[in-house]
């Protein structure tokens, strides 16, 4: 369960959006919609603890009973998926997954698990490739899988499909939806695409600029 209370982004004491209050249950997706430049991405950056210093976030976010305020990003247990897949270019496909997997298990077991995850997203046999050798759709799937194997307690989706073409979009939507239900975690989707929101979200909030 992820609860947002009076969440707001402020620039030089000027609020950018009307405060948001909502709660998202595990397995559900909340969509935040609005025109570009309204501060949607900044909201997710505030939630994940990576807001730029020029902006200030206000309000409270509680994940499974724990307040996220003042925690460094690495202790928030949030997964973030952006339109840029941000796969580490110097690591192979398998290494990108291994990097994200929690500690534990022998090297062989870990590698085996990584291989299975790759099979789930149709990337079997590409373990030793570098990310730049993958197609756009493959990169997007790998980025999603990398976020999931870290076992986040909630997922933040920042326009994750906007760089994909129409058919790929459809596939990725389904993949994301299934993954969130299976992982049974709350998710917040930020988008300006009506279709994304209609198909995925159980609840939609229109952001209003002030």
């Amino acid at each position: 369960m992820l609860e947002l209370v009076d969440l707001q982004i402020v620039r030089q004491q000027q609020p950018l959006i009307a405060p948001i209050t909502a709660s998202v249950a595990a397995g559900q997706i909340l969509a935040l919609m609005g025109p570009s430049g309204v501060g949607k991405s900044s909201l997710l950056a505030y939630l994940s603890g990576t807001l730029t210093p020029e902006l200030e976030g206000r309000g409270k976010a509680v994940l499974n009973g724990n307040s996220l305020a003042h925690l460094p990003p690495e202790q928030r247990h949030l997964g973030l998926l952006q339109q840029h897949p941000l796969l580490f270019p110097h690591m192979t496909v398998a290494e990108n997954l291994l990097f994200a997997m929690p500690k534990g298990g022998s090297n062989q077991q870990r590698y085996h698990t990584a291989q299975q995850h790759l099979q789930d997203i149709g990337l079997q046999g590409l373990e030793a490739r570098l990310p730049e050798q993958l197609s756009g759709g493959q990169q997007a799937r790998l980025a999603l899988m990398r976020t999931l194997v870290a076992k986040p307690a909630a997922l933040l989706l920042d326009e994750p499909f906007s760089k994909l073409d129409k058919t790929l979009r459809q596939d990725m939507r389904q993949l994301v939806k299934d993954a969130i239900e299976q992982a049974h975690i709350p998710a917040i989707l930020v988008t300006h695409d009506e279709e994304d929101a209609q198909e995925l979200a159980s609840k939609i909030i229109q952001l209003q600029a002030i």
Binding site: P72, L80, L86
Partner: peptide, 17 residues
Amino acid sequence: LQPQQTLQAARLLGYER
């Protein structure tokens, strides 16, 4: 490079800065 984004991605996967 893309230093900020790369660091954010790694930190959100749970890595200390």
